[in-house]
Protein backbone atom coordinates (compact mmCIF):
# COMPACT_ATOMS: atom_id res chain seq x y z
CA UNK A 1 0.00 0.00 0.00
CA UNK A 2 2.64 2.50 1.05
CA UNK A 3 4.99 1.18 -1.62
CA UNK A 4 2.24 1.61 -4.16
CA UNK A 5 1.69 5.22 -3.21
CA UNK A 6 5.40 5.97 -3.32
CA UNK A 7 5.56 4.40 -6.74
CA UNK A 8 2.62 6.47 -7.91
CA UNK A 9 4.18 9.62 -6.49
CA UNK A 10 7.45 8.90 -8.25
CA UNK A 11 5.63 8.34 -11.52
CA UNK A 12 4.60 11.97 -11.43
CA UNK A 13 8.09 13.08 -12.38
CA UNK A 14 8.41 11.29 -15.74
CA UNK A 15 4.77 12.07 -16.50
CA UNK A 16 5.41 15.73 -15.90
CA UNK A 17 8.44 15.55 -18.14
CA UNK A 18 6.43 14.03 -20.98
CA UNK A 19 3.74 16.67 -20.53
CA UNK A 20 6.29 19.47 -20.63
CA UNK A 21 7.74 18.16 -23.89
CA UNK A 22 4.30 17.87 -25.44
CA UNK A 23 3.20 21.34 -24.37
CA UNK A 24 6.45 22.98 -25.36
CA UNK A 25 6.37 21.33 -28.75
CA UNK A 26 2.75 22.32 -29.33
CA UNK A 27 3.44 25.91 -28.34
CA UNK A 28 6.49 26.09 -30.54
CA UNK A 29 4.79 24.50 -33.53
CA UNK A 30 1.77 26.75 -33.29
CA UNK A 31 1.97 29.47 -35.92
CA UNK A 32 3.22 32.74 -34.54
CA UNK A 33 6.11 33.90 -32.39
CA UNK A 34 6.60 36.69 -29.86
CA UNK A 35 7.90 39.04 -32.52
CA UNK A 36 4.54 39.08 -34.33
CA UNK A 37 3.01 40.99 -31.46
CA UNK A 38 5.72 43.62 -31.58
CA UNK A 39 5.43 44.03 -35.30
CA UNK A 40 1.67 44.30 -35.29
CA UNK A 41 1.62 47.41 -33.15
CA UNK A 42 4.53 49.05 -34.92
CA UNK A 43 4.39 50.37 -38.43
CA UNK A 44 7.87 50.73 -39.84
CA UNK A 45 9.09 47.40 -38.57
CA UNK A 46 11.88 46.29 -40.90
CA UNK A 47 13.58 43.04 -41.86
CA UNK A 48 16.60 44.13 -39.87
CA UNK A 49 14.42 44.67 -36.81
CA UNK A 50 12.99 41.20 -37.22
CA UNK A 51 16.41 39.57 -37.58
CA UNK A 52 17.77 41.45 -34.61
CA UNK A 53 14.85 40.57 -32.37
CA UNK A 54 14.61 36.93 -33.36
CA UNK A 55 18.27 36.47 -32.44
CA UNK A 56 17.87 38.48 -29.29
CA UNK A 57 15.06 36.23 -28.14
CA UNK A 58 16.92 33.10 -29.22
CA UNK A 59 14.08 32.13 -31.52
CA UNK A 60 16.40 31.27 -34.37
CA UNK A 61 17.14 27.90 -32.76
CA UNK A 62 14.91 24.82 -33.26
CA UNK A 63 12.32 24.12 -30.60
CA UNK A 64 14.03 21.09 -29.03
CA UNK A 65 17.16 23.12 -28.45
CA UNK A 66 15.10 25.84 -26.83
CA UNK A 67 13.26 23.23 -24.84
CA UNK A 68 16.54 21.89 -23.56
CA UNK A 69 17.57 25.35 -22.35
CA UNK A 70 14.16 25.87 -20.83
CA UNK A 71 14.06 22.58 -18.97
CA UNK A 72 17.58 23.10 -17.67
CA UNK A 73 16.63 26.41 -16.14
CA UNK A 74 13.18 25.28 -15.04
CA UNK A 75 14.76 22.45 -13.08
CA UNK A 76 16.53 25.13 -11.06
CA UNK A 77 13.29 27.00 -10.53
CA UNK A 78 13.91 29.67 -13.16
CA UNK A 79 11.01 29.77 -15.61
CA UNK A 80 12.32 32.73 -17.54
CA UNK A 81 10.90 36.22 -17.91
CA UNK A 82 7.52 37.05 -19.33
CA UNK A 83 8.17 38.77 -22.61
CA UNK A 84 5.01 40.73 -22.23
CA UNK A 85 5.08 41.85 -18.63
CA UNK A 86 8.81 42.19 -18.23
CA UNK A 87 8.83 40.30 -14.96
CA UNK A 88 9.64 36.68 -14.13
CA UNK A 89 6.89 34.54 -15.58
CA UNK A 90 6.56 32.62 -12.32
CA UNK A 91 6.13 35.85 -10.36
CA UNK A 92 3.42 37.04 -12.70
CA UNK A 93 1.51 33.78 -12.50
CA UNK A 94 1.88 33.03 -8.81
CA UNK A 95 1.71 36.53 -7.41
CA UNK A 96 -0.85 38.20 -9.64
CA UNK A 97 -3.04 35.41 -10.94
CA UNK A 98 -3.02 32.38 -8.68
CA UNK A 99 -4.49 34.04 -5.56
CA UNK A 100 -7.48 35.33 -7.51
CA UNK A 101 -8.03 31.95 -9.05
CA UNK A 102 -7.81 30.19 -5.70
CA UNK A 103 -10.36 32.56 -4.28
CA UNK A 104 -12.84 32.17 -7.09
CA UNK A 105 -12.50 28.48 -7.83
CA UNK A 106 -11.99 27.48 -4.20
CA UNK A 107 -15.14 29.24 -3.16
CA UNK A 108 -17.10 27.89 -6.11
CA UNK A 109 -16.04 24.31 -5.50
CA UNK A 110 -16.66 24.60 -1.79
CA UNK A 111 -20.14 25.95 -2.30
CA UNK A 112 -20.89 23.40 -4.99
CA UNK A 113 -19.72 20.58 -2.74
CA UNK A 114 -21.51 21.79 0.36
CA UNK A 115 -24.77 22.13 -1.53
CA UNK A 116 -24.46 19.14 -3.82
CA UNK A 117 -23.74 16.39 -1.29
CA UNK A 118 -26.68 16.89 1.08
CA UNK A 119 -29.04 17.80 -1.76
CA UNK A 120 -28.14 14.72 -3.75
CA UNK A 121 -28.49 12.55 -0.67
CA UNK A 122 -31.83 13.92 0.37
CA UNK A 123 -33.05 13.71 -3.15
CA UNK A 124 -32.11 10.03 -3.30
CA UNK A 125 -33.56 9.23 0.11
CA UNK A 126 -36.81 10.81 -0.92
CA UNK A 127 -36.82 9.42 -4.40
CA UNK A 128 -39.91 10.36 -6.42
CA UNK A 129 -40.87 13.07 -3.93
CA UNK A 130 -41.62 16.60 -5.03
CA UNK A 131 -38.27 17.64 -3.61
CA UNK A 132 -36.52 15.01 -5.72
CA UNK A 133 -38.21 16.20 -8.88
CA UNK A 134 -37.44 19.80 -8.05
CA UNK A 135 -33.77 19.06 -7.45
CA UNK A 136 -33.53 16.96 -10.58
CA UNK A 137 -35.08 19.69 -12.65
CA UNK A 138 -32.76 22.36 -11.26
CA UNK A 139 -29.83 20.06 -11.94
CA UNK A 140 -30.91 19.65 -15.49
CA UNK A 141 -30.96 23.41 -15.85
CA UNK A 142 -27.53 23.59 -14.27
CA UNK A 143 -25.94 21.19 -16.71
CA UNK A 144 -27.80 22.56 -19.70
CA UNK A 145 -27.02 26.25 -19.47
CA UNK A 146 -23.89 27.44 -21.25
CA UNK A 147 -21.81 28.89 -18.47
CA UNK A 148 -20.88 32.16 -20.17
CA UNK A 149 -24.46 32.70 -21.14
CA UNK A 150 -25.59 32.11 -17.58
CA UNK A 151 -22.98 34.61 -16.42
CA UNK A 152 -24.12 37.25 -18.85
CA UNK A 153 -27.74 36.68 -17.87
CA UNK A 154 -26.85 37.08 -14.20
CA UNK A 155 -24.97 40.23 -15.01
CA UNK A 156 -27.82 41.53 -17.14
CA UNK A 157 -30.36 40.96 -14.39
CA UNK A 158 -28.39 41.88 -11.30
CA UNK A 159 -26.14 44.64 -12.48
CA UNK A 160 -27.78 46.19 -15.53
CA UNK A 161 -31.46 45.86 -14.66
CA UNK A 162 -31.54 45.76 -10.87
CA UNK A 163 -28.20 47.48 -10.26
CA UNK A 164 -27.69 45.36 -7.17
CA UNK A 165 -24.27 43.89 -7.86
CA UNK A 166 -21.16 45.04 -9.72
CA UNK A 167 -20.71 43.88 -13.31
CA UNK A 168 -17.54 41.94 -12.86
CA UNK A 169 -14.01 42.76 -11.69
CA UNK A 170 -12.21 41.85 -8.50
CA UNK A 171 -13.00 44.91 -6.45
CA UNK A 172 -14.10 48.50 -6.51
CA UNK A 173 -11.05 50.73 -6.74
CA UNK A 174 -10.84 53.13 -3.83
CA UNK A 175 -12.41 51.25 -0.95
CA UNK A 176 -10.60 51.32 2.35
CA UNK A 177 -10.88 49.61 5.69
CA UNK A 178 -10.81 45.86 6.25
CA UNK A 179 -14.54 45.33 6.64
CA UNK A 180 -15.66 47.41 3.64
CA UNK A 181 -13.06 45.61 1.54
CA UNK A 182 -14.38 42.22 2.57
CA UNK A 183 -17.96 43.27 1.85
CA UNK A 184 -16.90 44.72 -1.48
CA UNK A 185 -15.01 41.58 -2.36
CA UNK A 186 -17.96 39.41 -1.42
CA UNK A 187 -20.28 41.47 -3.61
CA UNK A 188 -17.91 41.03 -6.52
CA UNK A 189 -17.70 37.31 -5.89
CA UNK A 190 -21.41 36.51 -5.85
CA UNK A 191 -22.10 36.45 -9.59
CA UNK A 192 -18.94 34.70 -10.81
CA UNK A 193 -19.17 32.12 -8.04
CA UNK A 194 -22.81 31.50 -8.88
CA UNK A 195 -21.94 31.02 -12.53
CA UNK A 196 -18.87 28.91 -11.94
CA UNK A 197 -20.36 26.63 -9.29
CA UNK A 198 -23.61 25.93 -11.13
CA UNK A 199 -22.25 23.24 -13.41
CA UNK A 200 -20.28 21.41 -10.73
CA UNK A 201 -23.14 21.67 -8.32
CA UNK A 202 -25.59 20.18 -10.74
CA UNK A 203 -23.40 17.33 -11.89
CA UNK A 204 -22.25 16.44 -8.37
CA UNK A 205 -25.79 16.44 -7.04
CA UNK A 206 -26.74 14.17 -9.88
CA UNK A 207 -23.91 11.76 -9.22
CA UNK A 208 -24.48 11.84 -5.49
CA UNK A 209 -28.10 11.00 -6.05
CA UNK A 210 -27.40 8.19 -8.44
CA UNK A 211 -24.71 6.57 -6.33
CA UNK A 212 -26.90 6.87 -3.24
CA UNK A 213 -29.74 5.18 -5.08
CA UNK A 214 -27.45 2.44 -6.18
CA UNK A 215 -26.27 1.72 -2.67
CA UNK A 216 -29.65 1.97 -1.03
CA UNK A 217 -30.67 -1.01 -3.10
CA UNK A 218 -27.68 -3.11 -2.12
CA UNK A 219 -28.09 -6.15 0.06
CA UNK A 220 -25.96 -5.03 2.97
CA UNK A 221 -28.09 -1.93 3.43
CA UNK A 222 -31.13 -4.09 3.45
CA UNK A 223 -29.36 -6.31 5.96
CA UNK A 224 -28.49 -3.34 8.12
CA UNK A 225 -32.07 -2.23 8.06
CA UNK A 226 -33.30 -5.73 8.72
CA UNK A 227 -30.99 -5.90 11.73
CA UNK A 228 -33.01 -3.01 13.10
CA UNK A 229 -30.32 -0.37 12.94
CA UNK A 230 -31.76 3.14 13.24
CA UNK A 231 -32.44 4.69 9.81
CA UNK A 232 -30.08 7.59 10.59
CA UNK A 233 -27.22 5.26 11.26
CA UNK A 234 -27.92 3.27 8.11
CA UNK A 235 -27.91 6.44 6.08
CA UNK A 236 -24.83 8.01 7.56
CA UNK A 237 -22.61 5.07 8.28
CA UNK A 238 -23.51 2.64 5.54
CA UNK A 239 -25.00 4.55 2.69
CA UNK A 240 -23.32 7.92 2.73
CA UNK A 241 -19.80 6.64 3.21
CA UNK A 242 -20.08 4.50 0.15
CA UNK A 243 -22.09 6.88 -1.94
CA UNK A 244 -19.58 9.67 -1.47
CA UNK A 245 -16.89 7.60 -3.17
CA UNK A 246 -17.47 8.62 -6.80
CA UNK A 247 -17.99 12.23 -5.75
CA UNK A 248 -14.57 12.42 -4.20
CA UNK A 249 -12.95 11.32 -7.42
CA UNK A 250 -14.96 13.94 -9.23
CA UNK A 251 -14.03 16.68 -6.78
CA UNK A 252 -10.36 15.83 -6.98
CA UNK A 253 -10.53 15.81 -10.75
CA UNK A 254 -12.55 19.02 -10.89
CA UNK A 255 -10.20 21.21 -8.88
CA UNK A 256 -7.51 21.70 -11.54
CA UNK A 257 -10.05 21.75 -14.36
CA UNK A 258 -11.97 24.53 -12.71
CA UNK A 259 -8.76 26.46 -12.13
CA UNK A 260 -7.69 26.43 -15.75
CA UNK A 261 -11.11 26.06 -17.31
CA UNK A 262 -12.65 29.09 -15.67
CA UNK A 263 -11.54 31.15 -18.64
CA UNK A 264 -15.13 31.71 -19.78
CA UNK A 265 -16.33 32.91 -16.41
CA UNK A 266 -13.18 34.95 -15.95
CA UNK A 267 -13.70 36.60 -19.32
CA UNK A 268 -17.32 37.45 -18.69
CA UNK A 269 -16.74 38.75 -15.18
CA UNK A 270 -13.42 40.32 -15.91
CA UNK A 271 -11.76 38.23 -13.24
CA UNK A 272 -7.96 38.19 -13.55
CA UNK A 273 -7.34 34.51 -12.93
CA UNK A 274 -5.16 31.74 -14.28
CA UNK A 275 -7.54 30.67 -17.04
CA UNK A 276 -7.46 34.04 -18.69
CA UNK A 277 -3.72 34.36 -18.10
CA UNK A 278 -3.06 31.10 -19.92
CA UNK A 279 -5.41 32.00 -22.74
CA UNK A 280 -3.84 35.43 -23.22
CA UNK A 281 -0.32 34.08 -22.95
CA UNK A 282 -0.98 31.63 -25.75
CA UNK A 283 -2.71 34.24 -27.87
CA UNK A 284 0.15 36.72 -27.64
CA UNK A 285 2.83 34.03 -27.70
CA UNK A 286 4.20 34.77 -24.25
CA UNK A 287 5.64 31.27 -24.04
CA UNK A 288 7.22 31.39 -20.60
CA UNK A 289 4.00 32.44 -18.92
CA UNK A 290 2.05 29.80 -20.81
CA UNK A 291 4.60 27.13 -19.91
CA UNK A 292 4.80 27.91 -16.22
CA UNK A 293 1.04 28.06 -15.77
CA UNK A 294 0.30 25.00 -17.86
CA UNK A 295 2.96 23.01 -16.01
CA UNK A 296 1.58 24.18 -12.70
CA UNK A 297 -1.93 23.10 -13.65
CA UNK A 298 -0.62 19.76 -14.88
CA UNK A 299 1.23 19.18 -11.66
CA UNK A 300 -1.91 19.96 -9.70
CA UNK A 301 -3.91 17.53 -11.77
CA UNK A 302 -1.37 14.77 -11.17
CA UNK A 303 -1.28 15.47 -7.45
CA UNK A 304 -5.04 15.47 -7.19
CA UNK A 305 -5.25 12.26 -9.15
CA UNK A 306 -2.93 10.69 -6.65
CA UNK A 307 -5.03 12.12 -3.88
CA UNK A 308 -8.15 10.64 -5.45
CA UNK A 309 -6.49 7.24 -5.47
CA UNK A 310 -5.48 7.56 -1.85
CA UNK A 311 -8.98 8.55 -0.86
CA UNK A 312 -10.33 5.60 -2.80
CA UNK A 313 -8.18 3.30 -0.75
CA UNK A 314 -9.13 4.92 2.52
CA UNK A 315 -12.83 5.09 1.87
CA UNK A 316 -13.30 1.75 0.16
CA UNK A 317 -11.26 -0.83 2.03
CA UNK A 318 -12.14 -3.47 -0.53
CA UNK A 319 -9.78 -1.90 -3.04
CA UNK A 320 -6.29 -3.28 -2.72
CA UNK A 321 -3.29 -2.19 -4.65
CA UNK A 322 -0.63 -4.82 -4.78
Amino acid sequence: MFAYLVRRALQIIPTLFVISVVIYALLALKPGDPIDELRRGNPGFTAADYDRLIKLYGLDKPWYVRYWYWVGRAAQGDFGPSRRFGMPAAQYVFQYRLPNTLLLSGLSLLIAFVIAVPTGMLSALRQHSLFDYGVTFVNFIGVSIPIFWFGIMLMYIFSVQLRLLPAGSLQTPGIEGLWPIIVDRARHLILPVAALSSLQMASWTRFMRSSMLEIINLDYIRTARAKGLPERLVTVRHTMRNAILPIITLVALAIPTVMSGAVLTETVFNWPGMGRAIFDAIVVNDFNVAMVSLMFISLLVLLFNLLADIIYVIVDPRIRYD
Binding site: Q95, L102, G106, L109, I175, E176, I181
Partner: peptide, 25 residues
Protein backbone atom coordinates in the same frame (compact mmCIF):
# COMPACT_ATOMS: atom_id res chain seq x y z
CA UNK B 1 -9.24 21.68 4.58
CA UNK B 2 -11.15 23.59 1.94
CA UNK B 3 -12.08 26.42 4.26
CA UNK B 4 -8.50 26.65 5.42
CA UNK B 5 -7.31 26.85 1.83
CA UNK B 6 -9.88 29.50 1.17
CA UNK B 7 -8.85 31.57 4.14
CA UNK B 8 -5.23 31.39 3.10
CA UNK B 9 -6.14 32.40 -0.43
CA UNK B 10 -8.26 35.28 0.82
CA UNK B 11 -5.51 36.56 3.02
CA UNK B 12 -3.00 36.14 0.25
CA UNK B 13 -5.17 37.91 -2.29
CA UNK B 14 -5.95 40.66 0.17
CA UNK B 15 -2.35 41.28 1.08
CA UNK B 16 -1.71 42.47 -2.45
CA UNK B 17 -4.19 45.31 -2.22
CA UNK B 18 -3.31 48.65 -0.89
CA UNK B 19 -5.48 50.18 1.73
CA UNK B 20 -4.49 53.78 1.32
CA UNK B 21 -7.09 54.68 -1.27
CA UNK B 22 -9.65 57.36 -0.92
CA UNK B 23 -13.14 55.94 -0.93
CA UNK B 24 -16.08 56.43 -3.32
CA UNK B 25 -16.07 57.69 -6.89
Amino acid sequence: VLSLLLLVAMGWADSSFSHQLSARL
